[in-house]
Write a protein that binds this DNA or RNA. Structure first.
Length: 419
RNA sequence: GGAGGGGUGGGAGAGCGGCCGAAUCCGCCAGUUUGGAGAACUGGUGUACCCUCGUGGUACCGCGGGUUCAAAUCCCGCCCCCUCCGCCA
């Protein structure tokens, strides 16, 4: 959520920057609501001050045995007026909050303005593999080697729920535990969070109210299934004021992620590319504002280090204004190469959300000079998501005779060198 | 799922209709003292919002409603924590 004070200060400037994300955004309605709200506050607070003085007088009068009837009658009317004004104020405040919640974060000046296609490739790591034989898709390899079984998974849960079998299951588990350990060694505190969360939590991360259709909801218990550990981790320090010396706080969490993925899928998203349930290792940082872009840099490096260790060819893309999630100020994606499709797929999305989430969740820190609490910056990044990673390993590590080389860092856990 | 107990400021904990934004202790910050530190003493120490920016005002005692001129305090609903019983991996 944006700071209403900042909007008041420079509505035109902010509106212009927000319009690079969504041209239909205009702030005049919000400003009008804000003005209305403030004048109501002034009015109602005046009345309350009057009532509080009167009530104190009643107390004194009664103590001295005086007659307070006339005063009481006046105060009763005043009290009725106050509750009417309070109701009006509540309604206006809700409207304003609703409008504010819909606004995206202000994009960082370095973010390219434009459509999805206007992302900027910052770097490409390694050589694009050009095998001299006919490569099989990860789906074909998986079926051949018995690494997963989508048909039986559908019997259990429905389509697009993956089921890994045999060495496929081992590979998946190996990846997850190796990645967590890898980041733990890089000074991230490992977290195994609850895999469901309440409405308030998703509001803070900004999954709600906008993306309610994307999340599985357990109505009976009013709980949402985790769609990304970002939503969970950001709530770790909700309503807290952290000491400056405690920053940055770095966490790594493994969670399964559930997404309804409402809408259609293309042929190229068969197999493991787009599924309702997947495993992800998430990195999350809470840090001081002046350090947050440096921290974004190291976050990206940490996510990249996974791809490097696995020996995969990938590229790094700086997303454009129209391609970022609502809460992000700046987002950099890591995209791994899938040879059968000749294209790159997102396996990590690293974002600086600045104060967008911390404002919603009242997550603050006290600056070193012992001053007033300030909202800190939150950063998140996948490190990484497994299904596409498995697809990439299968497709990139295959040989002509149909075997697949297990990346060295996973060989112990999988128990074999070849699948 | 059933029964009981409890949620108050950074922590512990009192208050149970008006003099309570809240005693007291601990912590923390500053000063005095000291060669320095500790101890001791003195003072300070929540957050947010509004305006006419002041020795100004409003709100906040788990959350939401209600009663009342007035609610931390009374009533109702919900959430969370603890103990015991039941059930279960």
């Amino acid at each position: 959520m944006l700071d209403i004070h900042a909007l008041r200060e420079d509505p035109a400037g902010i509106e212009k920057r927000l319009q690079t994300r969504d041209p239909s955004i205009e702030l005049s309605g919000i400003l009008a609501l804000d003005e209305k709200r403030r004048s109501l506050i002034t009015l109602v607070e005046e009345r309350k001050a009057e009532r509080n003085r009167g009530s104190a007088d009643v107390g004194h009068l009664k103590k001295q045995g005086g007659d307070a009837d006339a005063l009481l009658a006046r105060l009763q009317m005043l009290s009725d007026e106050i509750s009417a004004l309070d109701n009006e104020l509540r309604a206006v405040t809700e409207d304003l909050q609703g409008e504010l919640q819909r606004l995206p974060n202000i994009p960082h000046p370095t973010v390219p303005v434009g459509e999805k296609e206007d992302k900027v490739i910052l770097k490409t790591h390694g050589e694009k593999p050009e095998p001299e034989f006919e490569v099989r898709s990860h789906v074909a390899i998986g079926e051949r080697l018995g690494l997963f079984d989508f048909e039986r998974a559908a019997r259990i849960a429905g389509s697009r729920f993956p089921m890994y079998t045999g060495r496929g299951a081992l590979l998946e588990m190996a990846l997850v535990s190796w990645m967590v350990r890898h980041h733990a060694q890089r000074d991230y505190t490992p977290i195994w969070p609850p895999f469901v969360a309440n409405e308030e939590s998703f509001y803070v991360s900004s999954q709600l109210p906008k993306f309610a259709d994307e999340i599985y909801y357990v109505e009976k218990d009013r709980l949402y299934l985790n769609p990304t550990a970002e939503s969970l981790l950001v709530n770790l320090h909700r309503d807290e004021i952290l000491a400056a010396a405690d920053l940055p706080r770095k966490y790594v969490a493994y969670t399964p992620c559930f997404r309804r993925e409402a809408g259609s899928y293309g042929e190229e998203e068969r197999g493991l590319i787009r599924v309702h349930q997947f495993n992800k290792v998430e990195l999350f940082k809470f840090c001081a504002p002046e350090r947050s872009y440096d921290e974004l840099g190291t976050l990206i490096e940490d996510a990249e280090s996974v791809l490097m260790a696995l020996g995969l060819h990938y590229r790094v893309a700086l997303l454009s204004t129209k391609d970022m999630a609502q809460q992000a100020s700046k987002t950099v994606d890591l995209e791994v190469y899938l040879p059968t499709q000749g294209r790159y797929y997102e396996v990590s999305s690293c974002s600086n959300c600045e104060t967008f989430q911390s404002r919603r969740g009242a997550i603050r820190y006290r600056p070193v000079d012992n001053g007033k609490p300030e909202f800190l910056h939150t950063l998140n990044g996948s490190g990484l998501a497994t299904p596409r990673l498995v697809a990439a390993i299968l497709e990139n590590n295959q040989t002509e005779d149909g075997r697949v080389w297990v990346p060295e860092v996973l060989q112990d856990a999988v128990g074999v060198e070849w699948l």
